[in-house]
Design a protein around this nucleic acid. Sequence first.
DNA 1: AGCCGTTGTGTACGACCGTACACAACGTTG
DNA 2: CAACGTTGTGTACGGTCGTACACAACGGCT
Lengths: 180, 180
Amino acid sequence: MPRRYDPERRQRIIEAAIRVVGEKGLAGLSHRSVAAAADVPLGSTTYHFKTLDELMVAALRQASEGFAKVIASRGGLEDARTDLATELAAWMGEWLAGDRTGVELEYELYLAALRRPALRPVAAEWADDVARRLAHRTDPVTARALVALMDGICLQVLLTGAEYDEAYAREMLRRVAGGG
Amino acid sequence: MPRRYDPERRQRIIEAAIRVVGEKGLAGLSHRSVAAAADVPLGSTTYHFKTLDELMVAALRQASEGFAKVIASRGGLEDARTDLATELAAWMGEWLAGDRTGVELEYELYLAALRRPALRPVAAEWADDVARRLAHRTDPVTARALVALMDGICLQVLLTGAEYDEAYAREMLRRVAGGG
DNA sequence: AGCCGTTGTGTACGACCGTACACAACGTTG
DNA sequence: CAACGTTGTGTACGGTCGTACACAACGGCT
């Protein structure tokens, strides 16, 4: 088979990696599984990403950007007339409703930084980015705490299989946000 | 080699599994690696734990119990004269200081429930257990939120490599706990 | 044209994995 | 003692993995 030049090969591999993690989990991520999902030969994935860590960094960064786009397009965060806690609680509800593949995918990549130092700068960037968006409506320190609380609440739902209680989330977010 | 009867074989395998996860991460856990760490033949680990999930459940449960013992022995949580937020923030500081192998180990097993439904009941049990301990000092709903916030703060420190800011943690815990 | 670095491909090697399964050693029961 | 279920052991099979490496196709340069 003749080799076809593909300037977006790298990008397609990253997208395939995200698909693989979403479907089979991070444990199912390998050069081979990604190659199959992207419909490229094995040598291609190892060429563009020497290690799996590199691939995960690219995938996490991409997922992070997609996530940022979603919450940006949603608006409401900028609107000072809406209550911040209510807004955040409602948004978590939407995020956790229905198909959780996307949520699990993003948390799995994010949490992978626990054991993979290579991912930490990207994870830090993500957390900072979200906090910066909230900082328009409150102070930076409170913003960081809101992110922490949202992470904690989401994880409790995802890890324990509990139902998401929006009223509860709203109340606790309001306590942290104060008058904001 | 003659086979030696070992009534605590199962327990030794669990302890070896915890050691392996602590040293090599959850990804390094296998029937073989555990067998080597416990100094038992391969067939022994597969006999006592048909699947790795079973082994993880046992390890998480054990780690959870050890954790419970530590915070119980620390006391202070029962003492109504101390400020709850101050107490919790100080305790997180101790936990995160120094060698983080134990912290990482416990969070890694806990977070593994995200993709492994078999672990969820154990994770839920753990979260409930911690919340119940706090419930002596505040209401159950607030207790759950305090656990969520602590998880979120811990994860931000562990995932992003940031420094732990005890004053910040104390302030935010106080906001959630209210007068408690 | 010829040369060369980059990008892409195919294949093979050694390591590790879960699983299965036959067999050995034991405790219990009759 | 004999029979039997439980517990422990050794080995081997098929599969997947990361990695390496020789080679092919291309673009830019002289």
